[in-house]
Design a protein around this nucleic acid. Structure first.
Lengths: 215, 215
DNA sequence: TTTTCAACTACACCAATGTGTAGTTTTATT
DNA sequence: AATAAAACTACACATTGGTGTAGTTGAAAA
């Protein structure tokens, strides 16, 4: 017997659940180990631990799909988690991805698409609709303020980076060949441009606006 | 005449360039407005400004594809930029996405895949290979340290979030029904766990480890 | 040339921060 | 019940940080 892909389904709508179950079971190398209407039920069985792929609905009674994904990935971090949702708001999408999901499908997937998606996941890919992909990519785009004046200058960006490393005014001054008050001068403008009043806030905003590098 | 999709190609390998050009021109609703061997050349022409889609190689002589993407998206932010690359390192991928690209293809794409990808982009999607998608999604996953001890407790996480908002010890103490020294007590452990010695560093690390929310 | 402005330097001052040390209460372990 | 660890509270103190105000300089705009 070939190596089977062992799948768990968690979805509260029983029609959808059984539909997927039969679709997947009719594939040669797929077995549905368990299908549940809630995370709570799933956790009582052994299916989760043995599965190498989990289809997880976002909208579940009790423990939500996102919370579930988090729990599952700490229980069995080898399992690939694919979320299936009717929502496509930022919270659902990014929450899921942060929780460890590697794919995000819309509930309207056809059986063929579902099977393709699972195969993509097994091959190391990330199945998702192009629209979701765009949402995700957008979150990487650099923030472009309307007015050029709102942009930090090169010097200011450099100082913000040093601030983010926790360096004191003195150290920054030394590194940038400025007086301590010169550093303060620039920091004043940084704070003004970012509308903040402390290093911590500035660093936070710098990250969110992708002024500070993230990788 | 139907509305044409106006395309610019920037790719230094002339074989690839002309191959794509002919592929795309043979499509009914695509026109290649210009194809160039470097960003410098492209910027001298009007093609870029008129295009609504740009295929951009990453490895270019002179101005790199990433720098080019940045320049192009500030010149013409309606244009959809699809990167085409043989590299798949983090710097290339995330640099491109940050620069404003909405898709990322491997150079080995077939003509059919290229056309499909362009259509996906035009429909508001983000064409990319499943493997690239996985890389991108991975960057969202929460950091999971080996030892549970290294994890911040719920209270610590809450405090770190307040720190990131620039709140003073006093304010945090009030909000969390603790004494100022109680807050300090927790901050000591936060700093110890994150190996930092200041708010700014802690916020920075918190963001990088995805302890602080990014959206 | 005069004016303007950005880029500094300088000083002052209080609030906030980081850290050492120590004591108390609560919670979990044995 | 005894003990240990975690979760605080408390105090002290040097350092750093944020901000107001003001003066200098050099380069660009009028």
């Amino acid at each position: 017997m070939k190596t089977m892909v062992q799948i768990t389904i968690i979805e509260d709508n029983s029609f959808a659940r059984t539909a997927w179950e039969t679709t997947l079971n009719s594939e040669e190398n797929f077995v549905v180990l368990g299908s549940f209407g809630s995370c709570e039920e799933a956790f009582e069985s052994e299916a989760l631990k043995k599965s190498n792929l989990i289809l997880l609905d976002i909208n579940l009674p009790g423990i939500s799909g996102i919370e579930g994904a988090e729990a599952i990935s700490s229980l069995n971090n080898k399992a690939l988690i694919i979320m299936i949702s009717i929502q496509d708001d930022d919270k659902s999408i990014f929450g899921s991805l942060q929780a460890g999901a590697i794919g995000y499908l819309h509930k309207s997937v056809t059986p063929e698409e579902l099977i393709d998606s699972i195969n993509i996941a097994l091959r190391g890919g990330s199945p998702m609709t192009p629209q979701i992909a765009r949402r995700v990519l957008k979150s990487f785009h650099k923030f472009k303020p309307k007015l050029a004046e709102d942009n930090l200058s090169e010097k200011e960006t450099a100082i913000l980076n040093l601030l983010s490393e926790g360096k004191s005014y003195k150290k920054i001054a030394d590194e940038m060949f400025l007086s301590v008050d010169g550093v303060k001068y620039h920091i004043r403008s940084i704070y003004e441009k970012l509308h903040v009043h402390s290093r911590a806030e500035a660093v936070n905003k710098g990250q969110k606006l992708r002024i500070l590098s993230k990788w």
